[in-house]
Design a protein around this nucleic acid. Structure first.
Lengths: 207, 207
DNA sequence: AAGATTAAAAATGTATACATTTTTAATAAT
DNA sequence: ATTATTAAAAATGTATACATTTTTAATCTT
């Protein structure tokens, strides 16, 4: 069932599902070769997490991208991920940091799509956040990051995202290793703020 | 179906559903007199929103209260509701403020349970937040406030919650009417912070 | 006696069938 | 011609039935 949800997310992102008209349970049922019950379950989850919106009282639609929502998502991330990192900092062993560094190396690959890059970016952050041991906060942050993926499907997204993001990660690791906790929190805050501003700028200019 | 979800929430809060052991779909099905399908739907939603947690791979359980989660919930509220109020401030007409004041009067009634008080408190805040026109942010804040209700079921919750909360609301209205926006944001922040601290204190001492 | 193995029981996930609600479009009224 | 009305079609919500997975407990092994 989680497979179906992920597949729906991918197909929403890749434009394989039609935008601008309501999606019906039967239609999705025949597309994915399962009955309406698991489709209903998946739709309910995706509605809860902002991937689909109700269309009147029957059917759902793929929501339009809009810069206000992107701004909200990034600002929420900024506020909440700082809290999460703060809890995580005392528990960030060299081993955990090592795992995050490995992911950051993968981000180096030049052939990644923006979606793949977004996924790796979250994997990196999640690696750090997990040791915060704050499941409720983590869960909200995870959903926000998932939602942000909806905004990362462009062929030509915000420029230079790759280079800046990656070196900021390295800076972050460095600050954490040197126990400069206050500064690492500020860096994270700025890291997300800048990414959000670029995204919002891009959306405003392309709407 | 939303009726069933609300009824389940109430029954969780009022202790009508057993804590400490897994709840089965069939059991709930016979309690509420509907088939397992709508029960499944409701369970899925309540799991998403933290009202139930998975128990292994079969069944769900009512989660224990713990102060870390309460701390997270209030800190998230603090960060996000300030953002939401900031968006709302320019649109807070006298009419909207009037509706909020009416709710604040209802909070005056001495015979309210903590749950009813919590509900009215959210109604008041939601009245202000709706005019922010930020559905994504509003939705997250709404879920957080719903979740906080789980922590408000005590017979003897944090003391003096009623008096302080109500006068703080009045202060907030006053500041907004006088266009002292910066200060109203600070007051809201402090309003939630103090409520959270009291709740956390209470939970720590009673665990 | 403690732990692993296996079979029965029970629970969940899914499919199909039915009931109810919602949508659509055709007809009637102003 | 535009708006209401109404009936047919289609969609969703729910119930029942079945398949698969998970749990439980009884048996076997060491």
């Amino acid at each position: 069932m989680v497979d179906l949800v992920d597949q729906l997310k991918d197909d929403i992102l890749n434009g394989k599902l039609p935008k601008g008209r309501p999606l019906r349970q039967q239609e999705l049922s025949s597309i994915y070769g399962v009955s309406r019950i698991p489709i209903r379950d998946a739709i309910a989850l995706l509605k809860n997490q902002g991937w689909l919106i109700a269309h009147g009282k029957a059917g759902v639609m793929i929501p339009e991208l809009n810069w206000q929502e992107a701004e909200d998502l990034y600002r929420m991330r900024m506020a909440l991920e700082v809290q999460l990192l703060e809890h995580a900092l005392p528990n960030l062993s060299h081993e955990v940091l090592g795992r995050a560094k490995d992911i950051n190396l993968q981000l180096n690959a030049p052939c990644l799509t923006l979606l793949e890059r977004g996924q790796l970016n979250w994997d990196l952050h999640a690696t750090l956040y997990k040791v915060a041991n704050r499941p409720t906060l983590f869960n909200v942050v995870a959903i926000l990051n998932e939602q942000v993926r909806r905004y990362m499907g462009f062929q030509d997204g915000p420029l230079n995202y790759r280079d800046t993001s990656q070196s900021e990660h390295e800076q972050l690791f460095h600050l954490i290793e040197n126990k400069q906790f206050e500064q690492s929190l500020c860096l994270l805050e700025d890291h997300i703020k800048v990414a959000g501003q670029k995204m919002v700028e891009y959306l405003k200019s392309n709407q």
